[in-house]
Nucleic acid binder design. Structure first.
Lengths: 349, 349
DNA sequence: TTGTACGCGTTATCAT
DNA sequence: ATGATAACGCGTACAA
């Protein structure tokens, strides 16, 4: 029980401009003028008002200000799970850009639930957010798409694509994946497995497209059994790797695309005693400390998710500042980079 | 230019209860009654009102509601950088608990800047947040402490300690570190280095305390040169490891406490060609995919940061629901676990 | 230069 | 059961 200040211990009373005005012995209009870059206020009055504000610890109610038409300067960011390092980096990138422009970023997780996505859209709508960065889980969600198009603010899709007039940012997964597969083909691989998720969104389509086109271009027939595309979870990587290894003719290379997949794939490979790259070549995405420091170091497809978040925020800002129409379509693409390390070799003879 | 719906293309007009009332042909009070579990409204009227709401796409303004005294049901979470997996996991834990109780979590990064911390405190104050989860950068910040104690909402400190009547949650770093050092001492190590950050906060003090007490208890004199406690950055781990290796009598073991330090330490060790655990024993914290899958697998001090976030939210909720006094002191401690893997051995003869 | 009064959109209290 | 109206805290046009 420290002898603290006179801070109310239980229910802090609402203090308003009127209280400040009374204490300072002025009218409420004057208080308002003092706090809002007043063009004309006597120094003496200003001091008195500021003293009163300080004494009472008053802060203007954002709600009341907002009712007066003052913008909330708040934008939302909705994605499935903050623990995904890709998303937290994007959020930080967006936050940095937005904070710099005087906006506050409000981050919320949807857990990949359509119901929670619409719920959050409604929440941001009621709170009068000015814009939204959104990584929708299922691009085919009718309800969510409807909510987006009827929302009173512009939306920028992140790593997703909708048949709606909104901005979008994403990494060039097509080229990244294609280059990785071409590299493996060049090494002599013919049975290349791909483990990933997002079957129903832009990222997944781009990756599949890159994979398939690389194979087709090289005249190699693709085997559907080598495409394991149902989840980004580490567990999935573990299970599917085991499954692949158990097949009659297992792959000689695995491309694992998704933050957490690499650990699962590596675990399974080690458990089975498979040597990388001797018995199995491996390429992952995105880059990570694990990929850099694993033994052998893992060749990866890398892209800068922090930068992706920045670009998304920039795209949104252009709409907020009226430089671009509310519903203008636009897509910004972040490049992917192929980082050669030591996890690939020619297939075993 | 898709022939989209009638969505306004530039400036969506503010639509209000009055609009809804007009369209439905009722009074605004009735609209309010319909949306707020109206105890008595004719089914026919209710249907008309709901139809009007749907037609106009109206959502009540949270600002106006808040002015009427409706709680914001919003709590803030401030920490240095969302990209730290520890924080994003905590945030998700807190978000899960709070969302379940009908609260929205607003996450904001301070970048470890005192100025931004006070700025955010002010922001949450103006927005009438109902509570705050806070991981202050410097426990000695006078301004920030003042802002916390005069804020009109309860605060729960995360992994930090203040001489203020607030709740707090943290992991038991003292025991975790002490057990790790005792283990190394038991292996025969006498020169044990510790690399970490947070010299001025609870986490750092607990870790230093555990380290020092373990040494003292074993009658081993501590060498201040082995304590490198100025940062959690990967780069710092890299540089300090190099520095330690360059000393006349280098350590035989390193304890690296901080999410990103392990990668830096490992990089430096590999660059110098030092074998783990043959020439150098290594213990890290927290656990990570890298620690699990590095070769050799790294022995770690582990704690559940997601759970830590949950506990913090629970502590705050008790205050919000009035079960506990606004400024009651309380500390919840999460256990740390010592996970033995393969990165430690007896020191080289 | 400073004070007064109105309105923002909602909920709640009256009447009807 | 429903309609009219006051009040919440702030910014600002207008009056003094």
């Amino acid at each position: 029980m420290s002898a603290a200040k006179t801070t109310p211990a239980s229910r802090p009373a609402r203090i308003t401009v009127h209280d400040v005005a009374r204490v300072a012995g002025v009218a409420i209009g004057t208080v308002s003028r003092v706090v809002n870059q007043a063009p004309s206020v006597t120094d003496e009055i200003r001091v008195r008002v500021l003293a009163a504000i300080d004494e009472l610890g008053w802060t203007p109610s954002a709600a009341a200000q907002n009712m007066r038409g003052v913008a909330t300067r708040m934008v939302g960011f909705v994605f499935s799970d903050m623990r995904n390092p890709l998303y937290s980096a994007m959020a930080k990138g967006a936050e940095d850009v937005l904070a710099n422009a005087g906006y506050m970023l409000v981050v919320a997780s949807s857990d990949g639930l359509e119901s929670r996505e619409t719920q959050l859209l409604d929440l941001f709508s009621r709170r009068r957010a000015e814009g939204l960065l959104f990584s929708i889980e299922e691009e085919s969600s009718r309800d969510v798409a409807a909510a987006i198009s009827s929302a009173p603010f512009p939306t920028v899709m992140i790593e997703r694509e909708l048949a709606l007039p909104v901005g979008a940012v994403g990494a060039d997964h097509y080229t990244g994946t294609r280059r990785a597969v071409e590299y493996l083909l060049g090494l002599g691989h013919r049975r290349i497995a791909m483990i990933s998720g997002g079957r129903r969104n832009r990222v997944g389509r781009d990756r599949s497209g890159g994979y398939l086109d690389a194979l087709a271009h090289a005249g190699v027939e693709s085997d559907p059994a080598l495409l394991r595309l149902d989840s980004f979870e580490a567990d999935y990587g573990y299970r599917e790797t085991q499954w692949l290894l158990a097949q009659a003719s297992p792959p000689t290379a695995i491309v694992a695309l998704g933050s957490h997949l690499l650990s699962g794939v590596l675990s399974a490979l080690r458990m089975k005693g498979i040597e990388v790259p001797g018995q199995m070549s491996l390429i992952a995405s995105n880059d990570s400390e694990l990929a850099q420091l694993a033994t052998p170091a893992i060749t990866v497809i890398r892209y800068d998710s922090y930068q992706l978040g920045r670009e998304a925020a920039l795209l949104l800002l252009r709409r907020l500042e009226g430089k671009v129409a509310f519903g203008a379509e636009a897509r910004v693409e972040i490049p992917t980079e192929f980082v050669l390390r030591e996890s690939c070799a020619a297939p075993p003879a």
